[in-house]
Design a binder for these strands. Structure first.
Lengths: 128, 128
DNA sequence: CCTTAATGCAGCTTATTTACTGCCTTTATA
DNA sequence: TATAAAGGCAGTAAATAAGCTGCATTAAGG
């Protein structure tokens, strides 16, 4: 995972992933079209993306075709998004259990399980 | 998004997010328990996570409570995972259309829409 | 074959990042 | 009110990363 996050930390590489999503199978030359980067630099970026498992390549003669691999991103999603939702569910269940176990003490104290913040209240997304 | 990916690029900060997922509302002191880091370093990390919108804080007197905000991770997932799946669906639809439009020419050539790689075939996840 | 196109590797310079020490501000509490 | 706890800010040295130039390697195509 270290390699994945390091790879995603650079905007040039993120743009490359976007381009590969839209145009699967393009070559290095097509990848740098519209940019002012040298092929050598782009090649290093591609290597970093490959080592992170974010890009899959297939050779056709002297041409190297590049594809986005979504699996590492899925792992990221699982690590925090899915787990966060599970915890939210657990918190609700604990609260429900507490209510059912001591129905006469319902209002005595707040539920022990600390819920996360409301997911829509305090974050304003920022563009890349 | 730049700030989000930079924030996620450091293992210390990713461990912090894991800890906040498991223990919402903990303070800086609790965050560095079990590590050999100074509070000053951890404080800088927290600041980076806050500026990225990955961590939400609430002040209680002199204590600062920290919470994981999952929204930026959801944006990452949308950017590549969801879009990737949409493209896959588009590719399948295009193939289906091609088959229906020229049923007698089905085997003449391969479908034009380039599909992405098999998502389970070439990637072996790496631990953090 | 021989030339050209597509790509990779090595080395260098500059900019960014990290963790540290030292000091300051704010808030409980004895 | 004095003191300790929780946290922030500034500055510095070492490690990391990004882009460049130059050269090497492999495969198409006449």
């Amino acid at each position: 995972m270290e390699l994945v996050f390091k790879a995603l930390a650079d905007q040039t590489r993120r743009n490359m992933l976007d381009k590969l999503l839209q145009s699967p199978g393009i070559t290095l030359g097509e990848l740098i079209e519209g940019t002012d980067m040298r092929r050598q630099s782009a090649s290093k970026h591609v290597q970093i993306l490959e080592e992170a498992g974010l890009v899959h390549v297939e050779w056709r003669g002297r041409e190297k075709k590049h594809f986005l691999n979504p699996i590492p991103v899925r792992e990221i999603s699982r690590r925090w998004l899915d787990k966060y939702n599970e915890h939210q569910a657990d918190a609700l269940l604990s609260m429900k259990d507490a209510l059912e176990e001591t129905p006469e003490n319902v209002r005595r104290e707040q539920p022990q399980v600390k819920r996360g913040p409301e997911v829509t209240s305090f974050f304003t997304p920022i563009e890349d």
